[in-house]
Design a binder for these strands. Sequence first.
DNA 1: TAATATTACATTGTTATACTATGTATATTG
DNA 2: CAATATACATAGTATAACAATGTAATATTA
Lengths: 111, 111
Amino acid sequence: MNEIFVTKWKSQVKKGTLTFVVLNVLRNNEFYGYEFIEEVKKLTAIEIAEGTFYPLMNRLKKEDLVSSKWVEQESGIPRKYYVLTETGKETLKQMQVYWAELSTSIKEISK
Amino acid sequence: MNEIFVTKWKSQVKKGTLTFVVLNVLRNNEFYGYEFIEEVKKLTAIEIAEGTFYPLMNRLKKEDLVSSKWVEQESGIPRKYYVLTETGKETLKQMQVYWAELSTSIKEISK
DNA sequence: TAATATTACATTGTTATACTATGTATATTG
DNA sequence: CAATATACATAGTATAACAATGTAATATTA
C-alpha cells in the first residue's frame, strides 16, 4: 500500500537527519567508516548506504566539523577514523536546539 | 558560528519532514494554502515558503494522498481547500511508525 | 588452494525536494 | 492611489541520499 511513496519518503527524511545522527554518534566516540555503519544499524535501525556515508563524511571534513586520521592495522587494511572537531561540537549544539523544537512540534501536531 | 551550515542543514531536514507535517496537520482539519502556512508557523515555528508549499501539495495530489476543492468567497479570491484522502490517512500511519522509530533512535544516541 | 565472503574506502550518475525569485490577481487600508 | 496583505502558482538552482560500480586486502570454507 503505497510502499514506493513511503520508501522514497524515508530516503528524504534522512536528508539532514543523517548528518545529525553522525555528529551525535561521534560526540563520544571515534569510529571508522565500516564500523560506524554497523554501529548505527545496531543502535538505531537506521541503514546508511556506503555511497551515502563516505561523501557525507567528506562534506563534513570540508566544513571542518569532523577530522580524520589513518590508523594502520597489525593485519588488514588501514582504517580511517573520524573525530568530531570543536567546530563540530558547537555546530551540533545548535542542531540539537532545532531538532528539539522540531520533534516537539511534530509531537504536538500528531495529537 | 557556522550559521550558513546550520541554515542549509535545517533546509535539508525539512525534506521529507514537511510532507509528514502537512499530512499530520490535515488529519483533523481542512485548510487552504495561505491559512495552512500561517497555521503551521503558529503551531510549530516551522516556516514554509510558498514556493515549497504549492509544489508539495501538487505532488501529494498526484500521489492521491490529498485532494482539493475550490471554495468561492463572498468577497475576495476563491480558496483551494486541501483534504486528506483515505490513501493519505493510511500512508500517514506508516509514516508515523517510521518517525516514532527514528525519533526514539535519535533520543538514544543523543544521550 | 581456489572460490567466495567480508572488510574497508571511494566515486559517478540519478532522483527528489526545499527554496529563491518572480508572476498573476484581488482586497484592504492609510 | 499607493502600499500592503491575501491567495495561488511556476521556473530555475542547490543539495543530499542512494544504487551501482570499482579497488584492494583479508578471512573463510569447500
